[in-house]
């Protein structure tokens, strides 16, 4: 199950336990949305906290074993993404006393942590993937991707609820739909996540430029032409335009659709570009 590059059995065990906690949290969050019984809700939250703690421990143990940041490869970065997403779900839950995002965010955390284990791992080790600037670069970028994932999930819910309201669905005031937050909340929270994502991505990319200039300028004089850098830059530009439009009063439905499209761009930039197009910037 654990990738060959993942050191240690304890570490793999922590990852598997985190997976199990995320899976169970997803089940209980969904059960709570269908039938809001307090016990199921508390169990879901408890399991999400446990999953996030195990996920963090997994990353920490990995870091100790690698004597480096734990997210210098695809496995680590995906596990970090899963951790940030679970954390954001918990922050939103505590802030708004609302568990309705859990059924949508926890499975994404689960998926990314699972992908971290099943995707092929490279063998080549890159010596320069360390240092404070590199750590900030990856952390901030992962945080921004998690924020964009949250914005996409909130936007998806906005579109679903909006469609039901638009078509005067009989269950807008009953069942799980009635337990979703209001359109107003979904729109505002998506915009906030978008803002957080844009700021952290801008900061993360700045750090990346500083690190790239320091590490690559001699060996890779054309490092700025790398597909991954262009992909990330375009993602930032896209989200920046969406954010400005949203603040200028663009129709929330359009913003919601763009948030979902933007997250597809993030996934492409993160996976396909990383794995297949980037020459100097791919995860190993």
């Amino acid at each position: 199950m654990a990738s060959p590059s993942s050191p240690g059995l304890t570490n793999a065990l922590l990852g598997v336990l985190a997976l199990a906690a995320y899976a169970l949290a997803s089940v209980f969050y969904t059960a709570y949305l269908r039938h809001p019984r307090l016990k199921a809700g508390r169990l879901a939250t408890g399991l999400a906290v446990l999953g996030a703690a195990l996920n963090f421990s997994f990353l920490y143990a990995r870091s100790l074993a690698l004597k480096n940041v734990p997210y210098a490869d695809l496995l680590g970065s995906m596990a970090l993404f899963g951790f940030f997403l679970a954390g954001m779900n918990l922050v939103l839950e505590v802030r708004h006393h609302d568990r309705s995002l859990g059924p949508f965010l926890m499975p994404v955390s689960l998926l990314f942590l699972l992908l971290a284990f099943v995707l092929p791992a490279g063998g080549e080790k890159r010596p320069n993937l360390k240092g404070a600037i590199f750590a900030f670069h990856v952390t901030l970028n992962m945080l921004s991707y998690a924020a964009f994932a949250v914005a996409a999930a909130l936007s998806g819910l906005y579109l679903v609820l909006g469609k039901k309201l638009k078509h005067r669905s009989k269950n807008v005031l009953a069942g799980p739909t009635a337990r979703l937050p209001s359109l107003g909340y979904l729109e505002r929270a998506a915009r906030t996540s978008l803002g957080v994502g844009v700021v952290t991505l801008a900061a993360g990319l700045s750090m990346g430029f500083a690190w790239g200039y320091h590490v690559w300028r001699v060996d890779h004089p054309f490092w700025l032409l790398d597909a991954k850098i262009w992909g990330a830059g375009l993602t930032l530009l896209f989200y920046f335009v969406v954010l400005v439009r949203a603040h200028r009063g663009a129709a929330p439905v359009t913003t919601a659709r763009l948030c979902i499209a933007g997250f597809v761009l993030v996934l492409l930039s993160y996976t396909a570009v990383n794995l297949f197009f980037s020459r100097i910037h791919s995860f190993t």
């Binding site: 609820l161 309201l165 807008v172 005031l173 009635a178 937050p181 209001s182 359109l183 107003g184 909340y185 505002r188």
Partner: peptide
Amino acid sequence: GIALSLVGRIFEE
């Protein structure tokens, strides 16, 4: 009552 509930489904405050 339904009218008020609909307002609550759409607007945060």
